[in-house]
Amino acid sequence: MGEFDFSVWGPSLPFIRDGLLFTLRLTLIAMTGGIVFGTLLALARLSPIVPLSRVAGAYVDLMRSVPLVLVILWFFLVIPYLTGKPVGAEVSAIITFTAFEAAFYCEIMRSGIQSVSRGQVHAAHALGLTQAQAMIHVVLPQALRNMLPVLLTQTIVLFQDTSLVYAIGAKDMLKAADVVGKNYNRPVEMIVLSALIYFAICFSLSLAVRQLQKRVAIVR
């Protein structure tokens, strides 16, 4: 057994907190943006306009078949050519995760929209709602509710995946733990601490999702 000194956890907490705040901010922005763009992508994929649904489908398939680390590297490389000036690792991470997660939320929203029965749309039309109104007021609210547990589970996956910004050196919680570990020469203790924090957050969230799953189920 090696020698451990867990007293490094104390002085590391301010750094871990700052890192965790970035991790949470990245997760929340990517989740919100991902769900919004994902829903638009899903509508595009289900649209009767063939070129639109093809393009959306190709985008989603592309994102889903490339490793996330590679997507992070891609965006970090390409964004400066598009904007004409270098961007920081943090900004790059936020753009990347929003774009990447949109593909995954899209597939969830698509199956959510498809899970709403056709009768609902017919009824909405019969009541005089236009196509757009029927989508916004009838279909999407039900799709969102049906898919809420899955959307949240995806968000837990997203929360874990944000650790991969390590590849471009963005200062998230894992990076903070890494830096403190190097400064105090206690890398092992800091890895253990970050694993415990990730586990505590993800495990409690997944328990919460399981509870929610029981409560939001629509009684038919």
């Binding site: 874990q160 995946d161 650790s163 991969l164 390590y166 894992l174 890895i191 970050s194 694993a195 990730y198 586990f199 993800c202 495990f203 997944s206």
Partner: peptide
């Protein structure tokens, strides 16, 4: 639960 709730990188 153990393997699902810690990021792969960690």
């Amino acid at each position: 639960e153990l393997f699902r709730n810690v990021p792969l990188l960690v």
